[in-house]
Nucleic acid binder design. Structure first.
Lengths: 244, 244
DNA sequence: AACCCCAATTGGTACGTACTTAAATGGATA
DNA sequence: TATCCATTTAAGTACGTACCAATTGGGGTT
Protein backbone atom coordinates (compact mmCIF):
# COMPACT_ATOMS: atom_id res chain seq x y z
CA UNK A 1 0.00 0.00 0.00
CA UNK A 2 2.93 2.31 0.60
CA UNK A 3 3.89 2.81 -3.03
CA UNK A 4 0.44 3.12 -4.46
CA UNK A 5 -1.98 5.97 -4.13
CA UNK A 6 -3.97 5.77 -0.92
CA UNK A 7 -7.32 5.89 -2.64
CA UNK A 8 -9.78 7.08 -0.06
CA UNK A 9 -12.63 5.31 -1.84
CA UNK A 10 -13.70 2.18 -0.13
CA UNK A 11 -17.12 1.21 1.14
CA UNK A 12 -19.13 3.93 2.81
CA UNK A 13 -20.08 2.81 6.34
CA UNK A 14 -23.72 2.21 7.11
CA UNK A 15 -23.94 4.95 9.70
CA UNK A 16 -22.56 7.41 7.17
CA UNK A 17 -25.07 6.41 4.53
CA UNK A 18 -27.83 6.63 7.08
CA UNK A 19 -26.59 10.04 8.16
CA UNK A 20 -26.77 11.29 4.58
CA UNK A 21 -30.20 9.80 4.06
CA UNK A 22 -31.49 11.41 7.22
CA UNK A 23 -29.86 14.75 6.42
CA UNK A 24 -31.65 14.72 3.06
CA UNK A 25 -34.96 13.69 4.62
CA UNK A 26 -34.66 16.42 7.25
CA UNK A 27 -34.51 19.00 4.51
CA UNK A 28 -38.12 18.21 3.65
CA UNK A 29 -39.33 18.52 7.24
CA UNK A 30 -40.26 21.59 9.20
CA UNK A 31 -38.59 23.00 12.28
CA UNK A 32 -39.05 20.90 15.41
CA UNK A 33 -40.62 18.07 13.43
CA UNK A 34 -40.16 14.78 15.23
CA UNK A 35 -38.04 12.11 13.59
CA UNK A 36 -38.98 8.47 13.97
CA UNK A 37 -37.71 6.92 17.17
CA UNK A 38 -34.29 5.33 17.18
CA UNK A 39 -35.81 1.87 17.25
CA UNK A 40 -38.11 2.68 14.37
CA UNK A 41 -35.25 4.03 12.30
CA UNK A 42 -33.27 0.88 13.04
CA UNK A 43 -36.06 -1.31 11.73
CA UNK A 44 -36.82 0.94 8.76
CA UNK A 45 -33.23 0.98 7.56
CA UNK A 46 -32.32 -2.52 8.54
CA UNK A 47 -29.56 -1.55 10.96
CA UNK A 48 -29.00 -1.79 14.67
CA UNK A 49 -29.96 0.93 17.10
CA UNK A 50 -26.28 1.56 17.82
CA UNK A 51 -25.76 2.43 14.17
CA UNK A 52 -28.77 4.74 14.19
CA UNK A 53 -27.38 6.49 17.24
CA UNK A 54 -24.01 6.95 15.52
CA UNK A 55 -25.74 8.68 12.61
CA UNK A 56 -27.90 10.81 14.89
CA UNK A 57 -24.89 11.85 16.96
CA UNK A 58 -23.23 13.16 13.81
CA UNK A 59 -26.37 15.06 12.86
CA UNK A 60 -26.66 16.48 16.35
CA UNK A 61 -23.03 17.58 16.32
CA UNK A 62 -23.68 19.30 13.00
CA UNK A 63 -26.63 21.12 14.54
CA UNK A 64 -29.23 19.52 12.28
CA UNK A 65 -31.23 17.82 15.00
CA UNK A 66 -31.62 17.98 18.76
CA UNK A 67 -32.53 15.11 21.04
CA UNK A 68 -34.55 15.09 24.23
CA UNK A 69 -34.31 12.11 26.53
CA UNK A 70 -37.69 10.53 27.05
CA UNK A 71 -39.25 12.53 24.24
CA UNK A 72 -37.57 12.03 20.88
CA UNK A 73 -35.34 13.48 18.20
CA UNK A 74 -36.39 16.67 16.42
CA UNK A 75 -35.36 18.82 13.48
CA UNK A 76 -33.32 21.76 14.78
CA UNK A 77 -34.67 25.12 13.65
CA UNK A 78 -32.70 26.26 10.65
CA UNK A 79 -30.11 28.93 11.09
CA UNK A 80 -27.71 30.53 8.72
CA UNK A 81 -24.51 29.37 10.26
CA UNK A 82 -22.86 26.03 9.88
CA UNK A 83 -20.27 24.54 12.15
CA UNK A 84 -16.86 25.95 11.43
CA UNK A 85 -14.58 23.55 9.60
CA UNK A 86 -11.15 23.70 8.05
CA UNK A 87 -11.56 24.99 4.52
CA UNK A 88 -9.30 26.66 2.00
CA UNK A 89 -10.24 30.01 0.56
CA UNK A 90 -11.32 28.34 -2.68
CA UNK A 91 -13.63 25.91 -0.90
CA UNK A 92 -14.92 28.69 1.32
CA UNK A 93 -15.90 30.88 -1.62
CA UNK A 94 -17.49 28.08 -3.57
CA UNK A 95 -19.59 27.23 -0.51
CA UNK A 96 -20.87 30.80 -0.58
CA UNK A 97 -21.71 30.52 -4.27
CA UNK A 98 -18.85 32.72 -5.43
CA UNK A 99 -16.17 31.92 -7.99
CA UNK A 100 -12.72 31.91 -6.38
CA UNK A 101 -9.62 33.17 -8.12
CA UNK A 102 -6.12 34.39 -7.37
CA UNK A 103 -3.49 36.82 -8.48
CA UNK A 104 -0.01 35.80 -7.43
CA UNK A 105 1.89 38.71 -5.97
CA UNK A 106 5.02 37.03 -4.67
CA UNK A 107 6.29 33.49 -4.82
CA UNK A 108 9.77 32.51 -3.71
CA UNK A 109 11.97 31.09 -1.03
CA UNK A 110 13.03 32.85 2.11
CA UNK A 111 14.58 31.85 5.41
CA UNK A 112 12.15 31.25 8.27
CA UNK A 113 12.13 33.92 10.92
CA UNK A 114 11.67 33.07 14.57
CA UNK A 115 7.87 33.01 14.59
CA UNK A 116 7.53 31.16 11.30
CA UNK A 117 10.03 28.57 12.47
CA UNK A 118 8.08 28.04 15.68
CA UNK A 119 4.79 27.68 13.84
CA UNK A 120 6.17 25.12 11.40
CA UNK A 121 8.30 23.31 13.96
CA UNK A 122 11.59 23.82 12.10
CA UNK A 123 14.77 25.68 12.90
CA UNK A 124 15.11 29.40 12.35
CA UNK A 125 16.55 30.01 8.90
CA UNK A 126 15.04 26.90 7.31
CA UNK A 127 14.14 27.65 3.69
CA UNK A 128 10.42 28.32 3.32
CA UNK A 129 8.30 28.75 0.24
CA UNK A 130 6.48 32.02 0.70
CA UNK A 131 3.45 32.71 -1.41
CA UNK A 132 1.52 35.95 -1.42
CA UNK A 133 -1.72 36.04 -3.36
CA UNK A 134 -4.62 38.39 -3.74
CA UNK A 135 -7.64 36.13 -3.45
CA UNK A 136 -10.58 37.06 -5.63
CA UNK A 137 -14.28 36.32 -5.32
CA UNK A 138 -16.14 36.84 -8.57
CA UNK A 139 -13.03 38.69 -9.82
CA UNK A 140 -13.07 41.27 -7.03
CA UNK A 141 -10.35 41.35 -4.35
CA UNK A 142 -11.49 39.70 -1.15
CA UNK A 143 -8.28 39.16 0.79
CA UNK A 144 -4.49 39.12 0.74
CA UNK A 145 -3.17 35.74 1.75
CA UNK A 146 0.40 34.88 2.68
CA UNK A 147 1.19 31.16 2.79
CA UNK A 148 4.36 29.62 4.11
CA UNK A 149 5.47 26.02 3.68
CA UNK A 150 8.70 24.19 4.38
CA UNK A 151 10.34 24.31 0.93
CA UNK A 152 11.86 20.82 1.19
CA UNK A 153 8.43 19.26 1.62
CA UNK A 154 6.99 20.76 -1.57
CA UNK A 155 9.66 20.61 -4.30
CA UNK A 156 8.47 22.12 -7.53
CA UNK A 157 5.39 23.74 -6.03
CA UNK A 158 6.63 27.23 -6.90
CA UNK A 159 6.53 26.35 -10.60
CA UNK A 160 2.97 25.07 -10.55
CA UNK A 161 -0.24 26.95 -11.24
CA UNK A 162 -0.87 28.73 -7.98
CA UNK A 163 -3.98 30.62 -9.00
CA UNK A 164 -6.28 27.84 -7.80
CA UNK A 165 -6.59 25.85 -4.63
CA UNK A 166 -3.34 25.32 -2.77
CA UNK A 167 -4.90 22.48 -0.78
CA UNK A 168 -5.72 20.66 -4.02
CA UNK A 169 -2.12 20.95 -5.19
CA UNK A 170 -0.78 19.74 -1.86
CA UNK A 171 -3.05 16.71 -1.90
CA UNK A 172 -2.45 15.83 -5.52
CA UNK A 173 1.31 16.25 -5.77
CA UNK A 174 2.62 15.84 -2.25
CA UNK A 175 0.07 13.68 -0.41
CA UNK A 176 -0.26 16.49 2.10
CA UNK A 177 -3.75 16.81 3.52
CA UNK A 178 -4.37 19.32 6.28
CA UNK A 179 -6.74 17.91 8.84
CA UNK A 180 -6.69 20.39 11.68
CA UNK A 181 -5.74 24.02 12.17
CA UNK A 182 -5.37 26.58 14.90
CA UNK A 183 -6.68 30.00 14.01
CA UNK A 184 -6.45 33.43 15.56
CA UNK A 185 -8.78 36.17 14.41
CA UNK A 186 -8.04 39.83 15.01
CA UNK A 187 -9.28 43.18 13.86
CA UNK A 188 -6.64 45.40 12.26
CA UNK A 189 -6.36 48.39 9.98
CA UNK A 190 -4.68 47.98 6.61
CA UNK A 191 -1.35 49.48 5.66
CA UNK A 192 -0.46 51.24 2.41
CA UNK A 193 0.63 48.20 0.44
CA UNK A 194 -2.19 45.96 1.62
CA UNK A 195 -4.80 48.59 0.88
CA UNK A 196 -3.52 48.95 -2.66
CA UNK A 197 -3.68 45.20 -3.23
CA UNK A 198 -7.22 45.06 -1.89
CA UNK A 199 -8.32 48.15 -3.75
CA UNK A 200 -9.52 49.98 -0.64
CA UNK A 201 -8.55 53.13 1.21
CA UNK A 202 -5.52 53.02 3.45
CA UNK A 203 -6.23 52.41 7.12
CA UNK A 204 -9.45 50.58 6.41
CA UNK A 205 -10.63 47.93 8.87
CA UNK A 206 -9.79 44.35 8.02
CA UNK A 207 -10.11 40.90 9.53
CA UNK A 208 -6.76 39.25 10.04
CA UNK A 209 -6.76 35.47 10.31
CA UNK A 210 -3.57 33.64 11.25
CA UNK A 211 -3.71 29.93 10.74
CA UNK A 212 -1.34 27.03 11.25
CA UNK A 213 -2.63 23.82 9.72
CA UNK A 214 -1.58 20.31 10.64
CA UNK A 215 -1.78 16.92 8.96
CA UNK A 216 -3.38 13.82 10.44
CA UNK A 217 -0.26 13.21 12.55
CA UNK A 218 -0.27 16.65 14.04
CA UNK A 219 2.75 17.80 12.04
CA UNK A 220 2.47 21.42 10.90
CA UNK A 221 2.22 21.78 7.14
CA UNK A 222 1.36 25.37 6.42
CA UNK A 223 1.21 28.75 8.06
CA UNK A 224 -1.13 31.32 6.57
CA UNK A 225 -1.91 34.94 7.27
CA UNK A 226 -5.04 36.27 5.60
CA UNK A 227 -6.24 39.84 5.52
CA UNK A 228 -9.91 40.10 4.61
CA UNK A 229 -11.73 43.24 3.54
CA UNK A 230 -14.10 44.09 6.36
CA UNK A 231 -16.74 45.29 3.95
CA UNK A 232 -16.89 42.03 2.06
CA UNK A 233 -16.17 39.29 4.55
CA UNK A 234 -17.34 37.99 7.88
CA UNK A 235 -16.84 34.72 9.71
CA UNK A 236 -19.99 32.86 10.62
CA UNK A 237 -20.10 29.75 12.73
CA UNK A 238 -22.04 27.83 15.33
CA UNK A 239 -20.78 27.08 18.81
CA UNK A 240 -22.03 24.62 21.37
CA UNK A 241 -21.99 24.28 25.10
CA UNK A 242 -21.13 21.02 26.79
CA UNK A 243 -23.69 19.14 28.83
CA UNK A 244 -23.43 20.51 32.43
CA UNK B 1 -22.31 -4.18 36.85
CA UNK B 2 -21.90 -6.31 39.89
CA UNK B 3 -24.28 -5.84 42.81
CA UNK B 4 -21.40 -4.95 45.10
CA UNK B 5 -20.47 -1.87 43.12
CA UNK B 6 -20.92 1.23 45.28
CA UNK B 7 -23.75 3.21 43.77
CA UNK B 8 -22.35 6.40 45.25
CA UNK B 9 -20.50 6.98 42.01
CA UNK B 10 -23.10 9.59 41.31
CA UNK B 11 -24.84 10.69 38.15
CA UNK B 12 -21.58 11.14 36.22
CA UNK B 13 -21.44 8.44 33.54
CA UNK B 14 -18.48 6.12 33.37
CA UNK B 15 -17.32 7.35 29.98
CA UNK B 16 -17.29 10.90 31.34
CA UNK B 17 -15.26 9.96 34.37
CA UNK B 18 -12.88 8.02 32.18
CA UNK B 19 -12.61 10.99 29.83
CA UNK B 20 -11.63 13.24 32.73
CA UNK B 21 -9.15 10.72 34.06
CA UNK B 22 -7.55 10.37 30.66
CA UNK B 23 -7.51 14.13 30.08
CA UNK B 24 -5.65 14.53 33.34
CA UNK B 25 -3.23 11.71 32.54
CA UNK B 26 -2.54 13.15 29.13
CA UNK B 27 -1.35 16.34 30.74
CA UNK B 28 1.63 14.44 32.12
CA UNK B 29 2.57 12.90 28.79
CA UNK B 30 4.58 14.34 25.95
CA UNK B 31 3.45 15.16 22.45
CA UNK B 32 2.69 12.13 20.31
CA UNK B 33 3.05 9.79 23.26
CA UNK B 34 1.07 6.60 22.71
CA UNK B 35 -1.86 5.90 24.99
CA UNK B 36 -2.61 2.32 26.03
CA UNK B 37 -4.68 0.46 23.47
CA UNK B 38 -8.45 0.61 23.75
CA UNK B 39 -8.56 -2.97 24.95
CA UNK B 40 -5.90 -2.28 27.59
CA UNK B 41 -7.76 0.80 28.82
CA UNK B 42 -10.93 -1.21 29.08
CA UNK B 43 -9.25 -3.77 31.33
CA UNK B 44 -7.35 -1.18 33.36
CA UNK B 45 -10.47 0.84 34.15
CA UNK B 46 -12.86 -2.05 34.39
CA UNK B 47 -15.14 -0.89 31.60
CA UNK B 48 -16.04 -2.17 28.17
CA UNK B 49 -14.22 -1.18 25.03
CA UNK B 50 -17.32 0.68 23.85
CA UNK B 51 -17.12 2.91 26.90
CA UNK B 52 -13.42 3.51 26.31
CA UNK B 53 -14.17 4.49 22.72
CA UNK B 54 -16.85 6.92 23.86
CA UNK B 55 -14.33 8.64 26.12
CA UNK B 56 -11.66 8.69 23.42
CA UNK B 57 -14.07 10.11 20.87
CA UNK B 58 -14.75 13.04 23.18
CA UNK B 59 -11.03 13.59 23.67
CA UNK B 60 -10.45 13.41 19.94
CA UNK B 61 -13.23 15.91 19.28
CA UNK B 62 -11.64 18.22 21.82
CA UNK B 63 -8.33 17.92 19.99
CA UNK B 64 -6.50 16.29 22.90
CA UNK B 65 -5.64 13.05 21.10
CA UNK B 66 -5.51 11.69 17.58
CA UNK B 67 -6.13 8.12 16.54
CA UNK B 68 -4.59 6.12 13.74
CA UNK B 69 -6.27 2.93 12.65
CA UNK B 70 -3.97 -0.02 12.98
CA UNK B 71 -1.48 1.97 15.01
CA UNK B 72 -2.90 3.47 18.18
CA UNK B 73 -4.07 6.57 19.98
CA UNK B 74 -1.62 9.38 20.62
CA UNK B 75 -1.38 12.64 22.52
CA UNK B 76 -2.05 15.49 20.11
CA UNK B 77 0.77 18.05 20.06
CA UNK B 78 -0.19 20.92 22.31
CA UNK B 79 -1.25 24.13 20.75
CA UNK B 80 -2.53 27.31 22.21
CA UNK B 81 -6.02 27.08 20.84
CA UNK B 82 -8.86 25.09 22.17
CA UNK B 83 -11.97 24.10 20.34
CA UNK B 84 -14.41 26.94 20.24
CA UNK B 85 -17.33 26.52 22.58
CA UNK B 86 -20.21 28.64 23.75
CA UNK B 87 -19.00 30.69 26.68
CA UNK B 88 -20.11 33.89 28.31
CA UNK B 89 -17.70 36.78 28.64
CA UNK B 90 -17.17 35.96 32.31
CA UNK B 91 -16.31 32.34 31.60
CA UNK B 92 -14.13 33.38 28.70
CA UNK B 93 -12.06 35.77 30.80
CA UNK B 94 -11.68 33.36 33.71
CA UNK B 95 -10.42 30.75 31.26
CA UNK B 96 -7.72 33.23 30.23
CA UNK B 97 -6.78 33.80 33.85
CA UNK B 98 -8.29 37.30 34.03
CA UNK B 99 -10.85 38.62 36.48
CA UNK B 100 -14.08 39.58 34.74
CA UNK B 101 -16.20 42.54 35.71
CA UNK B 102 -18.86 44.83 34.35
CA UNK B 103 -20.10 48.37 34.38
CA UNK B 104 -23.76 48.64 33.47
CA UNK B 105 -24.31 51.46 30.99
CA UNK B 106 -27.94 50.97 30.10
CA UNK B 107 -30.61 48.59 31.31
CA UNK B 108 -34.24 48.92 30.33
CA UNK B 109 -37.06 47.79 28.12
CA UNK B 110 -37.50 48.70 24.51
CA UNK B 111 -39.57 47.45 21.62
CA UNK B 112 -37.88 44.96 19.29
CA UNK B 113 -36.93 46.33 15.92
CA UNK B 114 -37.18 44.21 12.80
CA UNK B 115 -33.79 42.51 13.08
CA UNK B 116 -34.01 41.89 16.79
CA UNK B 117 -37.47 40.41 16.38
CA UNK B 118 -36.22 38.07 13.67
CA UNK B 119 -33.25 36.95 15.79
CA UNK B 120 -35.41 36.20 18.81
CA UNK B 121 -38.33 34.75 16.84
CA UNK B 122 -40.90 37.19 18.18
CA UNK B 123 -43.02 39.88 16.58
CA UNK B 124 -41.69 43.35 15.86
CA UNK B 125 -42.44 45.62 18.78
CA UNK B 126 -42.27 42.86 21.41
CA UNK B 127 -40.86 44.30 24.64
CA UNK B 128 -37.20 43.38 25.06
CA UNK B 129 -34.87 43.82 27.96
CA UNK B 130 -31.87 45.63 26.59
CA UNK B 131 -28.67 45.60 28.59
CA UNK B 132 -25.53 47.48 27.63
CA UNK B 133 -22.43 46.79 29.68
CA UNK B 134 -18.78 47.63 29.49
CA UNK B 135 -17.06 44.35 30.21
CA UNK B 136 -13.84 44.57 32.17
CA UNK B 137 -10.87 42.26 32.40
CA UNK B 138 -8.71 42.96 35.43
CA UNK B 139 -10.62 46.25 35.76
CA UNK B 140 -9.68 47.51 32.28
CA UNK B 141 -12.31 47.87 29.53
CA UNK B 142 -12.26 44.94 27.13
CA UNK B 143 -15.52 45.22 25.24
CA UNK B 144 -18.93 46.83 25.03
CA UNK B 145 -21.66 44.25 25.10
CA UNK B 146 -25.31 44.76 24.23
CA UNK B 147 -27.62 41.91 25.30
CA UNK B 148 -31.25 41.59 24.32
CA UNK B 149 -33.77 39.18 25.83
CA UNK B 150 -37.52 38.82 25.54
CA UNK B 151 -38.67 40.76 28.61
CA UNK B 152 -41.57 38.41 29.39
CA UNK B 153 -39.19 35.49 29.79
CA UNK B 154 -36.97 37.15 32.38
CA UNK B 155 -39.23 39.08 34.80
CA UNK B 156 -37.24 40.90 37.44
CA UNK B 157 -33.89 40.44 35.73
CA UNK B 158 -33.42 44.17 35.29
CA UNK B 159 -33.43 44.62 39.07
CA UNK B 160 -30.78 41.98 39.72
CA UNK B 161 -27.04 42.40 40.01
CA UNK B 162 -25.97 42.55 36.38
CA UNK B 163 -22.29 43.12 36.96
CA UNK B 164 -21.53 39.39 36.92
CA UNK B 165 -22.35 36.53 34.62
CA UNK B 166 -25.65 36.89 32.78
CA UNK B 167 -25.62 33.19 31.98
CA UNK B 168 -25.41 32.37 35.67
CA UNK B 169 -28.44 34.56 36.42
CA UNK B 170 -30.42 33.02 33.58
CA UNK B 171 -29.69 29.51 34.78
CA UNK B 172 -30.32 30.23 38.45
CA UNK B 173 -33.49 32.30 38.27
CA UNK B 174 -35.14 31.35 34.98
CA UNK B 175 -33.94 27.85 34.16
CA UNK B 176 -32.63 29.24 30.89
CA UNK B 177 -29.48 27.53 29.72
CA UNK B 178 -28.04 28.46 26.33
CA UNK B 179 -26.74 25.39 24.57
CA UNK B 180 -25.91 26.57 21.09
CA UNK B 181 -25.27 29.86 19.33
CA UNK B 182 -24.69 31.27 15.89
CA UNK B 183 -21.97 33.86 15.69
CA UNK B 184 -20.83 36.33 13.11
CA UNK B 185 -17.44 38.01 13.45
CA UNK B 186 -16.59 41.22 11.63
CA UNK B 187 -13.93 43.88 11.70
CA UNK B 188 -15.21 47.39 12.26
CA UNK B 189 -13.99 50.79 13.43
CA UNK B 190 -15.40 52.27 16.59
CA UNK B 191 -17.68 55.30 16.74
CA UNK B 192 -17.48 58.22 19.16
CA UNK B 193 -19.60 56.80 21.93
CA UNK B 194 -18.13 53.30 21.78
CA UNK B 195 -14.58 54.64 21.80
CA UNK B 196 -15.32 56.65 24.91
CA UNK B 197 -16.74 53.61 26.68
CA UNK B 198 -13.72 51.52 25.76
CA UNK B 199 -11.25 54.28 26.55
CA UNK B 200 -9.63 54.27 23.14
CA UNK B 201 -9.28 56.71 20.27
CA UNK B 202 -12.21 57.21 17.98
CA UNK B 203 -12.16 55.18 14.78
CA UNK B 204 -9.99 52.47 16.30
CA UNK B 205 -10.25 48.93 14.93
CA UNK B 206 -12.51 46.55 16.84
CA UNK B 207 -13.83 43.02 16.59
CA UNK B 208 -17.59 42.91 16.39
CA UNK B 209 -19.23 39.64 17.39
CA UNK B 210 -22.96 39.18 16.86
CA UNK B 211 -24.40 36.17 18.58
CA UNK B 212 -27.83 34.61 18.88
CA UNK B 213 -27.95 31.85 21.48
CA UNK B 214 -30.49 29.07 21.71
CA UNK B 215 -31.64 26.70 24.42
CA UNK B 216 -31.69 22.93 24.20
CA UNK B 217 -34.93 23.08 22.22
CA UNK B 218 -33.52 25.43 19.64
CA UNK B 219 -35.58 28.38 20.88
CA UNK B 220 -33.64 31.66 20.78
CA UNK B 221 -32.97 33.08 24.24
CA UNK B 222 -30.57 35.96 23.77
CA UNK B 223 -29.12 38.20 21.12
CA UNK B 224 -25.76 39.82 21.85
CA UNK B 225 -23.57 42.29 20.06
CA UNK B 226 -20.07 42.61 21.44
CA UNK B 227 -17.44 45.10 20.42
CA UNK B 228 -13.96 44.06 21.48
CA UNK B 229 -10.88 46.27 21.58
CA UNK B 230 -8.61 45.04 18.83
CA UNK B 231 -5.52 45.68 20.91
CA UNK B 232 -6.66 43.52 23.79
CA UNK B 233 -8.68 40.71 22.28
CA UNK B 234 -8.46 38.03 19.66
CA UNK B 235 -10.46 34.91 18.98
CA UNK B 236 -8.51 31.68 18.99
CA UNK B 237 -9.93 28.33 18.02
CA UNK B 238 -9.19 25.04 16.36
CA UNK B 239 -10.94 23.79 13.24
CA UNK B 240 -11.09 20.32 11.76
CA UNK B 241 -11.57 18.87 8.35
CA UNK B 242 -13.86 15.92 7.86
CA UNK B 243 -12.37 12.79 6.35
CA UNK B 244 -12.93 13.20 2.61
C1' DA C 1 21.38 -4.58 2.84
C1' DA C 2 17.15 -3.98 0.60
C1' DC C 3 12.86 -5.66 -0.52
C1' DC C 4 8.51 -8.12 -0.11
C1' DC C 5 5.03 -10.70 2.16
C1' DC C 6 2.56 -12.41 6.08
C1' DA C 7 0.88 -12.34 10.70
C1' DA C 8 -0.06 -9.84 14.78
C1' DT C 9 -1.70 -5.63 16.54
C1' DT C 10 -4.90 -1.83 16.79
C1' DG C 11 -8.53 1.11 15.79
C1' DG C 12 -13.25 1.05 12.95
C1' DT C 13 -17.75 -0.81 12.07
C1' DA C 14 -21.80 -3.38 13.34
C1' DC C 15 -24.68 -6.26 15.78
C1' DG C 16 -27.10 -7.81 19.97
C1' DT C 17 -28.84 -7.33 24.95
C1' DA C 18 -30.13 -5.09 29.26
C1' DC C 19 -30.98 -1.65 32.08
C1' DT C 20 -31.52 3.61 33.63
C1' DT C 21 -33.38 8.14 33.37
C1' DA C 22 -36.39 11.57 31.72
C1' DA C 23 -40.53 13.06 29.33
C1' DA C 24 -45.26 12.40 27.93
C1' DT C 25 -49.61 10.15 28.67
C1' DG C 26 -53.77 9.11 30.70
C1' DG C 27 -56.56 7.70 34.41
C1' DA C 28 -57.72 8.29 39.33
C1' DT C 29 -58.49 11.53 42.80
C1' DA C 30 -59.43 15.90 45.30
C1' DT D 1 -61.85 21.38 36.73
C1' DA D 2 -57.46 20.75 38.30
C1' DT D 3 -53.91 17.98 40.34
C1' DC D 4 -51.36 13.95 41.23
C1' DC D 5 -49.31 9.61 40.13
C1' DA D 6 -48.45 5.30 37.83
C1' DT D 7 -47.61 3.70 33.20
C1' DT D 8 -45.63 3.97 28.92
C1' DT D 9 -42.33 5.58 25.71
C1' DA D 10 -38.24 7.57 24.48
C1' DA D 11 -33.32 8.50 24.57
C1' DG D 12 -28.99 7.52 27.56
C1' DT D 13 -25.64 4.31 29.43
C1' DA D 14 -23.12 0.01 29.46
C1' DC D 15 -21.84 -4.48 28.37
C1' DG D 16 -20.61 -8.25 25.21
C1' DT D 17 -19.36 -10.34 20.61
C1' DA D 18 -17.71 -10.52 15.95
C1' DC D 19 -15.48 -9.12 12.15
C1' DC D 20 -13.15 -5.47 8.99
C1' DA D 21 -9.26 -2.40 7.67
C1' DA D 22 -4.99 -0.25 8.28
C1' DT D 23 -0.53 -0.25 10.29
C1' DT D 24 3.52 -2.38 12.04
C1' DG D 25 7.15 -5.44 12.54
C1' DG D 26 9.41 -9.78 11.83
C1' DG D 27 11.11 -13.18 8.78
C1' DG D 28 12.26 -14.86 4.51
C1' DT D 29 13.88 -13.87 -0.12
C1' DT D 30 16.52 -11.47 -3.43
Amino acid sequence: MSSGTPRTGGPVPKYERLRRALAAAIGALGDDAALPTERELAVQHGVSRATVRQALEALEAAGLVYRVQGAGTYVAPRTVAKTLSLTSFSEDMRAKGLTPGSRVVVVGEAAADHDEAADLAVGTGTPLLRLVRVRLADSAPMCVETSRLVAARVPGLAAMDLTGSLYALLAEHFEIRPRRADQAVRSVVTGEEQSALLGIASRSPALRVDRVSYDERGAPVESTTSLYRADRYEIRFAVHREAP
